[in-house]
Design a protein around this nucleic acid. Structure first.
Lengths: 238, 238
DNA sequence: CGCCGTATTGAGCGCTCTCAACGAGGGTGG
DNA sequence: CCACCCTCGTTGAGAGCGCTCAATACGGCG
């Protein structure tokens, strides 16, 4: 599918690639990670860490979905990322010796590989490959965040929703599925907090999308019907 | 001034610290930088690099102000950062082997130290200290950007302006000045593009701030009169 | 002195938020 | 198995914020 490739590449620069590519590390490093990591199980809604906490280590998602969010004084929440299988998180404040700036919460029952702060930093100290990988990855993530600031600062809800659905489509895509469309399943509140709006406005915008046959909505599940239109609507492409 | 300390620390986590602290590098590294860097002069409005260009090297501001912005298809622009004396920019896409995601434009006549891509990468390759410094710095910048996404997604113009003025106050602060307040000088359009609004709305919001004696406006120059109120207004503090 | 880019002001509209009410669904305990 | 409750989702109405368009002032520079 040529169109699908176009969509994918248009989202380059907007997609946080948090995948920790262990392939790029040496056998020793991989061995080290395997030895030191423990698997932890978390249930839906369980808090993995909270804002202003001291970071305990790095997490790698084996299964499930984790949302990273900030909660403001007025109680409003902004979901910044959703991490899924193969993606790593929680390690950045270790590098900059800061407290967690965000909450990490399981959106579904999930399994995580955990490496303690000291083990992680020890490995980082030893492995130039890891250090370089993180440097590269942080730099490209910088671009992603900058693009997103632009999006939030300049675009309205329609555009932000269109964009979010395209990103989520990738997050919710089943690894071995052939079809491009996914079954995007998350609560209205989560989706609203992800695009920075209220549930009411979100629902209304979803309906207008459905009326234009851009998506199909059945309960919690959202399916994209027209990728190209959504991409144009998002304003990131002409 | 105790209050001033409070303001400063409240802005931690929101302030992009792009200062390249050469002190942390070895004598050799500093020597290398000194030898390889050339000084270039740019005039107001001059483009240093453009979006989608291949990055040529790293820039270090000696004097003047550089704005980093993204321009969208519809012509709207979002100013993401303003770099001033001692701050480094332009090197991130070198690390991630990407094209520039932003424009860099001189807001005033400025002087920059330039190090070519190959020299920069060569130094990075040799210097663990630089590599670690960048890793730390990128990680804390990640937090800053995340905080800003939250701000843009959740807050209105009043809040964003209050916040921006506090940040700009630091950017425009004269190094040896004693007083906390600065003379913030930039065009209405630049300020509007920085907080993500139209010049008209910006002007009106500035006036309401002035009417509440939060700031003094004289032509292009803005002076903060009441830091504490602005900080509370910005919503980043209770 | 005139010109051009910048700043300000006014008016009107549209988008998005908030508040309030109602409906639907899922889980729990009886 | 059913009744209840609680959360989530949806819909309506109204207010207010921020945008756009248009006109008018301002100011530095040639």
């Amino acid at each position: 599918m040529k169109e699908q490739e176009k969509i994918k590449s248009a989202l380059d620069g907007f997609r946080l690639n948090a995948v920790l590519d262990l392939e790029e590390l040496s056998d020793d490093d991989r061995q080290y990670i395997r030895e030191r990591s423990t698997t932890i199980r978390v249930r839906r809604k369980q808090i993995i860490y909270s804002m202003h906490e001291k970071p305990k280590g790095m997490y790698l998602v084996r299964s499930g979905k984790i949302r990273i969010e900030q909660v403001n004084y007025d109680g409003s929440a902004q979901i910044l990322f959703i991490y899924t299988t193969g993606e790593a998180f929680g390690y950045r404040p270790l590098l900059s010796r800061e407290l967690h700036p965000v909450n990490a919460i399981a959106m579904e029952d999930s399994e995580l590989d955990f490496i303690s702060a000291s083990d992680f930093l020890e490995l980082l100290h030893r492995s130039v490959a890891l250090s370089n990988m993180l440097l590269t990855s942080l730099s490209s993530e910088f671009t992603v965040l900058v693009n997103r600031i632009n999006l939030f600062a300049q675009r309205g809800i329609k555009e932000r929703l269109a964009f979010a659905l395209l990103l989520l489509n990738e997050k919710y895509h089943h690894p071995n599925a052939i079809l491009p469309e996914s079954d995007i399943r998350l609560s209205r509140i989560d989706l609203a907090n992800y695009i920075g709006t209220s549930p009411e406005t979100l629902v209304r915008t979803l309906r207008t999308f459905q009326e234009k046959n851009l998506i199909r909505v059945k309960g919690r599940s959202i399916t994209i019907l027209n990728f190209e239109s959504l991409l144009i609507l998002s304003g990131i492409m002409r």
